[in-house]
């Protein structure tokens, strides 16, 4: 049974069988187990980290490796609990990432050096990222309905919650989904108009 090959949901019996195979030392089962959760763990790590924080990738990797080690060691007695375990591990890792730590304050210069090294690693790619940022900023500026831009800005950039956004912009909370859907749609149309898509082929 190849659980990882399934595009659809994992079932509890499938997962239980995988866990048994991993605990028995079957390498292919390890690959299948990780593949079951790779994308989900990655996106949860991104959502629980600050936007664009590269640490999200590391958190996802660490969480999957830790899961694999526990399964190998036979420490997972209830395979059905794996999704909940993974989700909790991501939350804890992301929280730890942003928890004020004395050592973070002390090693500031090293961290700055690391950042500079990253940014200097590929000046051309860095330039491309800046160009892309400028381009999308320009596109956002083209939203003709000011409320759309403000709505998207508050919701996605400032991460205000729905009630805050509604209160600030005078939107009935019951209509929030419809309003933000329309704002996303208008932004999508701008992206399409500016070539972020192919024409008739």
């Amino acid at each position: 049974m190849d659980v990882a090959a399934k595009a659809q949901s994992v079932t509890a019996p499938d997962l239980a069988a995988l866990v048994v195979r991993v605990a028995a030392g079957e390498r292919q089962a390890e690959v299948e187990l990780v593949d079951c959760f790779r994308r989900g763990v990655a996106v949860l790590a991104r959502r629980h980290c600050r936007p664009l924080d590269p640490a999200a990738d590391d958190i996802a990797q660490d969480v999957l490796v830790a899961m694999l080690e526990r399964v190998r060691a036979g420490a997972i007695k209830e395979p059905a609990a794996l999704p909940a375990y993974l989700r909790t591990a991501v939350i804890h890792a992301a929280a730890a990432r942003y928890r004020p730590r004395r050592e973070q304050a002390l090693d500031g210069p090293d961290r700055i050096g690391e950042r500079l090294a990253d940014e200097r690693a590929d000046p051309a790619a860095s330039l491309a990222a800046r160009q892309l940022a400028a381009a999308i900023a320009t596109l956002l500026g083209e939203l003709t309905v000011p409320r759309d831009r403000e709505l998207l800005r508050r919701f996605y950039l400032l991460e205000h919650d729905r009630d805050e956004v509604c209160a600030a912009l005078g939107i009935d909370p019951g209509h929030f989904h419809r309003v933000i859907h329309r704002a996303r749609q208008r932004f999508g149309e701008i992206l399409a108009r500016h070539g972020l898509g192919t024409g008739p082929g």
């Binding site: 320009t138 800005r153 991460e159 996303r184």
Partner: peptide, 18 residues
């Protein structure tokens, strides 16, 4: 999540009326 990241990226370029 990509949309959120795009706004952050655009915000870092100063183009969202931050």
């Amino acid at each position: 999540t990509g949309l959120r990241d795009a706004f952050a990226l655009a915000g870092s370029a100063g183009g969202t009326g931050e």
